[in-house]
């Protein structure tokens, strides 16, 4: 899971060399530990590489780890960050409730923690929680999904993420806050595909067989939406409305091609920049000058505005 670490290090090392050449400092530079859920998911990769590049340019030593959405593994990573005398921890956590203890422990050891993308269930421990507003994102994409199904509505299926993940729960709640209001929309199937494209492909194939009148598939992330897209194509069906969540480059390409209806872009790049900048300000001035909870809204990406978005950020 730590494959890209070497690449990150080489970026980091480049900055190390240039910075030490300029300042000739004796004191080793402060360590910023960045922990993200995974490095084989495009969203978290974009988040991590943005944070690494910015932290490096601000003069930090950087370490990147992935906890694979495993709270126990996250716990160990936080322990090792404490043991390495990290100056600060930037964390995209492994669960709103299961991460509180780890953040608490680091804070007690006076290592300020900055949460990005996902929140934890309590306030007052982390110095900042810069949260991608998954609830709002789910609502806007669900609204677009309902619009795609048209005034007549019809049957739809839902592909959920790993159901023990906080974000899978938040997203499905957001979807249903919108979709359950529409009386002519009927959810005929709901299956977890564990965020995985290949699992979503198989499950969508089976669901399409069980429900011949299916008119739409709403997916909890882009990988599952792309899997569902492949299943619809393989079944030779057309006109099925599919939406994703995340705003990955592959999904945006599929939206441009007209195969996906919409996705929600979480501004990973902006969130990672904010987290690193606020951590830097806190270490230098002792305050972030911001409230702890900062909700960053997500953007709806459809065929009309797909050209305006790059890798998890608005480019135009």
């Amino acid at each position: 899971m730590h494959v890209t670490r070497r690449a990150f290090f080489s970026v980091g090392m480049g900055t190390v060399l240039s910075v030490s050449a300029c300042h000739r400092e004796k004191v080793s530079r402060p360590l910023m530990v960045i922990v993200v859920p995974s490095l084989d998911n495009p969203f978290f990769r974009a988040e991590a590489s943005t944070a690494v590049a910015l932290a490096g340019s601000l003069g930090y030593r950087v370490r990147v780890d992935a906890h694979d959405d495993d709270a126990y593994r996250q716990d160990n990573l936080i322990d090792s960050a404490i043991a390495s005398n990290a100056a600060t921890i930037i964390l995209d956590n492994a669960g709103a409730d299961s991460s509180i203890a780890a953040v608490q422990r680091a804070t007690r050891k006076s290592i300020p923690c900055f949460l990005m993308d996902r929140e934890i269930a309590v306030e007052g421990i982390a110095k900042a929680q810069i949260i991608a507003d998954n609830d709002q994102g789910a609502r806007i994409v669900a609204t677009e999904f309902a619009r795609g199904l048209g005034p007549d509505g019809g049957e739809y299926a839902e592909l959920l993420g790993r159901e023990s993940d906080t974000n899978a729960q938040v997203r499905t709640r957001g979807f249903h806050a919108v979709l359950d209001e529409q009386k002519n929309l009927v959810r005929v199937a709901a299956q977890s595909a564990n965020w995985s494209q290949s699992e979503a492909f198989q499950k969508a194939e089976t669901i399409l067989q069980a429900h011949r009148n299916l008119r739409g598939i709403i997916a909890g992330n882009d990988a599952m939406a792309l899997g569902a897209m492949a299943a619809v194509k393989s079944a030779g069906q057309t006109g099925i409305v599919i939406t994703g969540f995340d705003g990955s480059p592959e999904a945006i390409a599929a939206i441009r091609a007209g195969d996906l209806r919409a996705t929600t872009l979480q501004p990973a790049v902006a969130i990672a920049r904010l987290a690193v900048n606020e951590a830097d300000r806190f270490l230098k001035t002792g305050s972030t000058d911001k409230t702890e909870r900062q909700l960053i809204p997500c953007d709806l990406v459809t065929r009309t505005n797909a050209g305006e978005y790059g890798e998890f950020e608005k480019v135009r």
Partner: peptide
């Protein structure tokens, strides 16, 4: 087979 069905290859497959 899986890569061909999805026309994409993910390392966690």
């Amino acid at each position: 087979v899986i890569a061909s069905q999805l026309e994409a290859a993910h390392p966690a497959t």
